[in-house]
Amino acid sequence: MAANRIRIAKDKADLVKSLTLLDHKSGPFQTYADVIAFAAALGNQRKKRSPLGEISKREPGAIDLDIFVSRGYDMAIKLIAIAETKNPQILSHLDGELEAERLQIFEEYANGGLEILREEFRGAADYTDRLLLFLITERDNKHQSNEEFDLSKFLF
């Protein structure tokens, strides 16, 4: 594994591409790194971690880690890795094996998140609208699960 690149599964490459550009119009995300970071956060939130399998060699290919760092996603990579392993040593930049493991965890959560998005977007013509509906539903579900059952809603 190239320790300085984030890889994308071949079967998710078209989804990643379509989330950044739809019919020569901008998609919901500006860059492939934005899509991967969002997918990794979603995969981590839903506890869906999937091995990559075959790696995409064409567009989008592996993304240089510097792009994630420049966009501020290096903290997300670290937080996901430490939450998964419960080992603060995973943050070490001195150990190449730990850095490779950290990136693999991030890649696998991103792959899991992309699987979730692929299911959510099945049959959608416009991913931007579908993503907005998905986020609204997620927010509403979170609010409902945090509220206690209130019988006063049934009073006139």
Score class of each variant (00 low, 15 high):
2 A>S: 15
2 A>L: 12
2 A>I: 11
2 A>Q: 12
3 A>T: 04
3 A>V: 03
3 A>D: 06
4 N>W: 10
4 N>L: 01
4 N>I: 08
5 R>I: 08
7 R>N: 06
8 I>M: 06
9 A>W: 02
10 K>H: 14
10 K>I: 08
10 K>P: 06
10 K>M: 07
12 K>C: 05
13 A>N: 08
15 L>G: 01
16 V>I: 04
17 K>A: 14
17 K>L: 10
17 K>F: 00
18 S>N: 14
20 T>P: 08
21 L>E: 12
22 L>A: 12
24 H>S: 13
24 H>W: 11
26 S>Y: 01
27 G>P: 04
28 P>W: 09
31 T>Y: 15
32 Y>S: 10
35 V>S: 05
36 I>F: 08
36 I>H: 02
38 F>L: 05
38 F>I: 04
39 A>T: 07
41 A>D: 07
42 L>I: 09
46 R>M: 15
46 R>W: 12
47 K>S: 07
48 K>L: 10
50 S>M: 04
52 L>S: 06
54 E>C: 01
54 E>L: 11
56 S>M: 01
59 E>D: 11
63 I>G: 04
64 D>N: 12
67 I>N: 06
68 F>K: 03
68 F>S: 03
69 V>H: 11
69 V>D: 10
71 R>S: 06
71 R>H: 08
82 I>C: 03
83 A>F: 07
83 A>M: 05
84 E>S: 08
85 T>K: 00
89 Q>S: 05
89 Q>K: 09
91 L>P: 06
93 H>Y: 04
93 H>T: 06
95 D>T: 09
97 E>F: 00
98 L>H: 01
99 E>N: 10
100 A>V: 10
102 R>P: 10
102 R>I: 11
105 I>R: 06
108 E>R: 01
108 E>F: 09
110 A>T: 06
110 A>K: 02
110 A>D: 05
113 G>M: 07
116 I>Q: 00
117 L>P: 14
117 L>K: 09
118 R>C: 01
118 R>L: 02
120 E>I: 12
121 F>V: 05
122 R>A: 14
122 R>M: 08
123 G>S: 05
127 Y>D: 11
127 Y>P: 05
128 T>A: 10
129 D>M: 13
132 L>M: 09
135 L>E: 02
135 L>P: 03
135 L>A: 14
138 E>C: 10
138 E>T: 11
139 R>F: 15
140 D>V: 13
141 N>Q: 11
142 K>C: 14
144 Q>P: 00
145 S>W: 11
146 N>V: 11
146 N>Y: 13
147 E>C: 10
148 E>L: 13
150 D>F: 15
151 L>S: 14
151 L>M: 12
151 L>H: 13
151 L>E: 15
